[in-house]
């Protein structure tokens, strides 16, 4: 048996931590569902209103739910001194940060994405939207995780944690929310979806390129 690679070991550990005691996924999924349940309660149950705003609202709630677990993304290991260990390992700090985001996404973003089409349909979006909704939510939540990770790394060690992360990160969620909700809108109105999808994917790739670099730099500054 070959020994597990450092990357895999880290991914496994972080996934275990984010799943442990249901903290991450259950919390995020519960928050997401509660938010969505508040929508008909605040806007009235008319199917016509709901189905019109469902795609956009779902995206807003997806963005908000993605914020939830960011605070603990690096904070936990920062407080426990685990980063001292991680930095003496063979992996670059950028890669370590990326793996942590990936584990976080597997633990929460993935589950939120799987819920997204269901929630949308419950709010009255046409059933045919499910496929695109899932694809878009997967790309979107992954960009949320990476951009959010950058925000989390910047606030590391400051005592205002959660709210500050939300303040820093939400403006950067504007493009994926616009493209994702735009994709849904395009589908519902029968317009071609490929422009929105390609813009959303482009933003995802951009987050993939920028996120780890930013996280690496921010972590290096926070961890000295």
């Amino acid at each position: 048996m070959t020994p597990p690679s450092p990357s895999l070991a880290l991914l496994k550990r972080d996934l275990g931590l984010s799943l442990a005691r249901g903290g991450g996924p259950v919390l995020a999924a519960g928050f997401y569902l509660t938010l969505m349940a508040m929508v008909p309660l605040s806007l009235g149950p008319e199917a016509q209103t709901l189905s019109k705003i469902a795609p956009g609202l779902t995206w807003l709630c997806l963005a908000l739910a993605s914020l939830l677990s960011l605070e603990r993304l690096f904070e936990r290991d920062y407080e426990d001194g685990v980063f001292d260990l991680l930095r003496t390992g063979p992996l670059a700090l950028e890669w370590v940060a990326f793996l942590k985001c990936l584990a976080q996404w597997l633990g929460t973003g993935l589950i939120l994405s799987l819920m997204t089409p269901v929630v949308m349909i419950l709010l009255g979006a046409p059933v045919g939207v499910a496929g695109w909704a899932l694809v878009a939510a997967l790309i979107g939540s992954f960009s949320f995780a990476l951009i959010g990770g950058a925000g989390a790394s910047l606030t590391l060690g400051s005592r205002k944690g959660g709210v500050l992360i939300a303040l820093l990160v939400l403006p950067f969620y504007v493009p994926p929310v616009i493209f994702g909700a735009g994709l849904m809108q395009a589908f519902v109105t029968g317009a071609p979806v490929f422009q929105a999808l390609s813009l959303l994917s482009a933003y995802g790739l951009f987050a993939l390129a920028l996120g780890p670099i930013a996280m690496g730099a921010a972590l290096r500054s926070a961890l000295n």
């Binding site: 403006p171 950067f172 504007v174 493009p175 616009i178 493209f179 735009g182 813009l199 933003y203 951009f206």
Partner: peptide, 9 residues
């Protein structure tokens, strides 16, 4: 990027 996305919107 944000400017572009908002304009697109």
């Amino acid at each position: 990027i944000i400017k572009f996305s908002v304009d697109w919107w």
